[in-house]
């Protein structure tokens, strides 16, 4: 038998972590969970292909048809170019919004309990899960972007812009992933979460600027659009990818604040999942 590692002395057991240690732990856990997500993607790439079908249809069918119709005024920007960032955000939204189902599966399989018995603060665990969803969204985004290029969408060549795209996708996915974990923490069941996820996904998508400019929306929809984080994600993506006017500081500020708030709320509800 191999020699097992020596147990740490009890005296070395640390005090409850302060803000600096919490941040360091959170970053370490985010890196760990992102690595695990990449390992999972490496072992099973089929999900990347199956999940690409829906965005491909949006770009190929909806995008091409509406480009020919000229039904949605997008100025000098071809409609397909205008649509591509919206579909990228939609693709990331669909991945993140059902992440709560994975958390419920992890609860049922005992994985969540095991994770919660590691020296990982709840907020760090939720942040790690949230950004792991972002990694999956980025992997998906690569597939959507290849499709967009094949369809002739003109994309920015500035590497800094693409760094911004990654950050926007990570923050947006973190928000929607935590929204999903929050709902999971409230409803506690996979079936209910599936129903709610389906009920809110399309309204979130249609009440955003993903498909059409805000100016075309009726007043009441514009109000919803202004409080919908997806709209800020799409605006940032559109600005960075195809160079349309964007309030990047506001967009990233809203995405960062929304993700932070939702990580806090989801962390508070996480133990309820294990107790429930």
């Amino acid at each position: 038998m191999s020699v097992l590692p020596a147990a740490p002395p009890v005296a070395s057991a640390e005090q409850e972590p302060g803000p600096i240690r919490l941040t360091r732990t959170a970053l370490s856990r985010v890196a760990t969970m992102c690595l695990v997500e990449l390992q999972k993607l490496r072992h099973d790439r089929s999900e990347l292909v199956t999940r690409a079908v829906q965005p491909a249809l949006w770009l190929l069918v909806f995008g091409n048809v509406f480009t020919r119709l000229h039904a949605i005024p997008t100025g000098d920007v071809p409609y397909l170019d205008y649509l591509a960032p919206g579909i990228l955000a939609q693709s990331a939204l669909f991945i993140a919004i059902f992440y709560g189902i994975q958390i419920i599966w992890e609860r049922d399989a005992g994985v969540l309990a095991k994770l919660l018995v590691t020296p990982t603060p709840r907020a760090a665990l939720v942040a790690a899960k949230a950004f792991a969803a972002g990694i999956r969204a980025i992997a998906q985004a690569v597939v959507v972007l290849v499709l967009a290029l094949l369809l002739g969408v003109s994309l920015s060549a500035n590497p800094l812009h693409w760094l911004g795209v990654i950050v926007a996708l990570m923050l947006g996915s973190a928000f929607f992933c935590c929204l999903s974990i929050t709902i999971a923490g409230i409803v506690l069941s996979r079936d209910r979460l599936m129903g709610i996820g389906q009920a809110i996904t399309m309204p979130l998508f249609f009440a955003s600027n993903a498909l059409y400019p805000v100016e075309l929306m009726p007043g009441w929809l514009q109000v919803i659009n202004h409080v919908n984080p997806l709209s800020y994600e799409v605006e940032a993506l559109r600005g960075l990818m195809i160079g349309t006017p964007a309030r990047l500081l506001l967009d990233f500020g809203v995405l960062l604040a929304a993700a932070a708030v939702m990580i806090t709320v989801a962390s508070a509800l996480l133990p309820r999942l294990v107790r429930g």
């Binding site: 409850e16 999972k40 994985v111 309990a113 095991k114 590691t118």
Partner: peptide, 21 residues
């Protein structure tokens, strides 16, 4: 709590290893 968790190894009732890894 954090210090206690560092002292523990825990195996839950369910088979909880990740089948995708």
């Amino acid at each position: 709590r954090t210090a206690v968790r560092r002292m523990l190894g825990y195996v839950p009732q369910q088979l909880s290893a990740d089948g995708t890894l």
